[in-house]
Design a binder for these strands. Sequence first.
RNA 1: GCGCCCGUAGCUCAGCUGGAUAGAGCGUCUGCCUCCGGAGCAGAAGGCCAGAGGUUCGAAUCCUCUCGGGCGUACCA
Length: 581
Amino acid sequence: MKDYLATALKRTLMSIPSVPKDFVPELSAPANPDHGDLATNCAMKLARHLRRPPRMIAEEIKDVFMSKHHDPFYVDSVSIAGGGFINFRFANSYLYHELESCLNQGLQFGRSDHGQGKRALVEFVSANPTGPLTVGHGRNAVLGDTQASLLEWIGYDVTREYYFNDAGRQMRVLGASVRSRYEEIVAEETQPFASLPRAVQHRECFQTKTLEGKDNTSIIVADSFPEDGYLGEYIITIARELVREHGIDLLDAPDNNIFEQAAKLAIFSGIRSTLERLGITMEHYFNEKSLYDSGAVTRTLNALRGRKMIYEQDGATWFKTSKLGKETDTVLVKRTGEPTYRLPDIAYHIDKMNRGYDVIINIFGADHIGTYPDILRGLDVLGFDSDRIKVVIYQFVTLTRAGEEVKMSTRKANFVTLDELMDEVTPDVTRYFFVMRSAQKHLEFDLDLAREASDKNPVFYLQYAHARISSILTKASELHLTPDPSPSNLNLLIHEAEIALIKEIIHFPQAITSCAEACEPHRLATYLRGIAEVFTRFYHACRIIGEEEQIATARLALAQATGITLRNGLSILGISAPERM
RNA sequence: GCGCCCGUAGCUCAGCUGGAUAGAGCGUCUGCCUCCGGAGCAGAAGGCCAGAGGUUCGAAUCCUCUCGGGCGUACCA
């Protein structure tokens, strides 16, 4: 439709004297549907150039359009309003045709080939295996997965990738934390006075100390526990597992390797199963270590050096980011000889580039703002086209429970994991809440609301609409009524609520394209909410079962198309579309 | 100090590349269950789109400044 109108309008304008050859008319949907379905502002745009009042130009455009380029299959009427808007109203024949097309496409409805088989990489989550995924990771995971699905729907070949680092200081601290807990448990379980309170046992057999946990709580740990160790309960679980497997044999372990490995394995498998619960499957896990093993990190540094962007000072290796629009230079290799994370990050993105992706999307938390530009600078310097990289920065999640904010931290004992969240509010609700707001806004996640209030919850509203449609279709089929998608029957749909619903449905493919290309998945949630509302209005205005058969089958077709749209939309959001609730 | 993001109804937020009378949910108030699923519907109240300038036919949207919030600004990840 938009294609037809755009070309018809363009041809119309070309036949009007003194319209610039390169003038491209804009078409947009009016805010108020009473005005029409698509409107153009070109008369106002041209007013200055043609030195004539906009309304007069609009009249001329309308006349030429109607006499030479009007196709009654698409456009019912053209009107002029306001300061010179030209409004086009769709012909019902076009609406029925599109509706039939929706029904024929079924589960494919909404897919397109805008991406033309181009390849896209979406990197998201990318949490290091030092603890369970938190609520913050949840927003990242849902945004990334939804964006990936959107791209698939518009014809991209998409890879979901998880980048992680399982070496370095963080992991050493993790290993030491587990070992300390292990020793603590061993001591506890092998003492003859095991029935005594735990704190007493500690004093008997162990040097202990007190660390400050979240909210001024103090936690007693063994003296061997690292100052910045991981206090989470999951560390104790891992240690306990080691005790069960190895007994006291690990007390003499020469280093913390076995503890580190055990922790890494356990935590990673936990992360995978959490993602699985959310319906997310990564196509690829990328280990930072491979960049060192392959020499990519060294090559990257040398390449930058070759561009004269590297210098040594105070024993460290610096990247001249001050020459690239940043205030200061940036350390790439510390005095200790250990690279900062930026160097392997640049190497990683070179690797992404070399793998030939047309679009590379990164989902980053707001704390990465100001760091990813260094990566882009590195790529630019080395001659890569960093425009292929799109970064979605999302603001943090505030979780509230009983009116109070719940703070989150992997290191401290008191945090809310993504699994705990899903236990409370189900994966469907979790996904919807994380994707329903614009990424660049803070997200307040009210647990009480998400959980207790099913009648206030938008995700239930969507699912309920779908379930209701399924129920109607089932009931109708028991009465031997089946949806009739032929336009000759659909043209019985003339009620205002029916027309409004059809228009909303056939907009679906375009909604997906625009969400995907703008990297704004929340807009899909907004759109689906709208579909459900318009459907509910139709449902109350127009009965299906009990009406004369032809009308009933036409309305059934409309209901079915709504169901298809809801189901497909929800599937992109990773949310189930239940037949019954 | 500097950089990025945000400021829209009492609360949480939509508002697509600038367009016509700024929308929804929750909360408040009025109605509505002989009826295909009431987890709902219809309606009311509620706004100087933080403030001030600017750009133009036209600004919540773009630019500048001010105020207020968030996140960065490490030889931590």
